[in-house]
Write a protein that binds this DNA or RNA. Structure first.
Length: 233
DNA sequence: CCCGTGATTTAT
DNA sequence: TAAATCACGGGG
């Protein structure tokens, strides 16, 4: 299947966040393919964006990958125990040479589902209980940014790698859906502290998918927009 | 709804 | 030092 190449990532964050819906995230683990279809994304828009790690051109060891070329991965640890996977984008030639990225928030599992189940059954913290893999529903495998990282064994071992050329993590596009689907455009999750940027509609998800994370977060009373779009399939 | 978990970054 | 954090799972 065609792997995404440099030009596919060389875009502003809003455009890329929308176009990544339907695209496959692929992780190769010991010869096995773990694959999920992206059904939820968020755009983090760089120095002006008060929810972005790169707000105010903040540049530290953690945020360094956001300053790398489009197509680089940015994996960070949050709340001391969970990882989140981001795709760096931007375009030096179009005045978009900024530390911008897309957070992948949810996948529909497609291949390697039993391995995902096993990975998700492992306790994320010392105190957490071991779970029976069989008790984990498909919709709980990748329905959140940290869940999908656990299910696909994504941690800082694959931080700051080039998704265009890496041998065990990349993105694949197969084609577009023949018919448009309902895509919801709403405020991002968990960024209430970000003042005027908290309410900006920078989150996109496939309405019909059972695999999205939070369906109805606080959105300040704003009603989300619905876009009819064909997405990669 | 609330809580505990928990490591790292950044601010004070 | 201390506060804050782009979650999750489990329990009322």
């Amino acid at each position: 299947m065609p792997r995404l190449t440099r030009p596919d990532f060389t875009l502003d964050p809003v455009t890329l966040a929308k176009s990544l819906l339907g695209v496959r995230l692929v992780r190769k683990l010991g010869g096995e393919r773990l694959v999920g279809r992206i059904v939820e994304t968020e755009a983090y828009c760089g120095p002006d964006d008060k929810a972005a790690h790169s707000v105010g051109w903040r540049r530290t060891n953690r945020t360094e990958p956001m300053y790398a070329k489009a197509g680089t991965s940015y994996v960070f640890l949050t709340y001391g125990m969970h990882h989140c996977f981001n795709v760096v984008c931007g375009d030096k030639n179009e005045g978009l040479d900024q530390p911008v990225a897309i957070l992948i928030r949810a996948l529909e599992p497609l291949e390697g589902i039993e391995t995902m189940r096993r990975l998700r059954a492992a306790p994320a913290s010392k105190n957490a209980r071991v779970r029976d893999p069989k008790s984990i529903r498909d919709r709980d495998l990748c329905s959140g940014p940290a869940k999908l990282c656990q299910a696909m064994s994504i941690d800082r071992g694959v931080n700051a790698v080039d998704l265009v050329s890496h041998r065990s993590v990349w993105l694949e596009r197969i084609g577009e859906t023949p018919e448009p689907v309902r895509v919801i455009n709403a405020p991002r999750v968990g960024v209430d502290y970000a003042e005027e940027w908290a309410k900006r509609p920078l989150r996109w998800f496939v309405e019909q998918s059972a695999h999205v994370s939070v369906r109805h977060p606080n959105s300040g009373g704003l009603h989300p927009k619905v876009e009819m779009r064909r997405i990669g399939v």
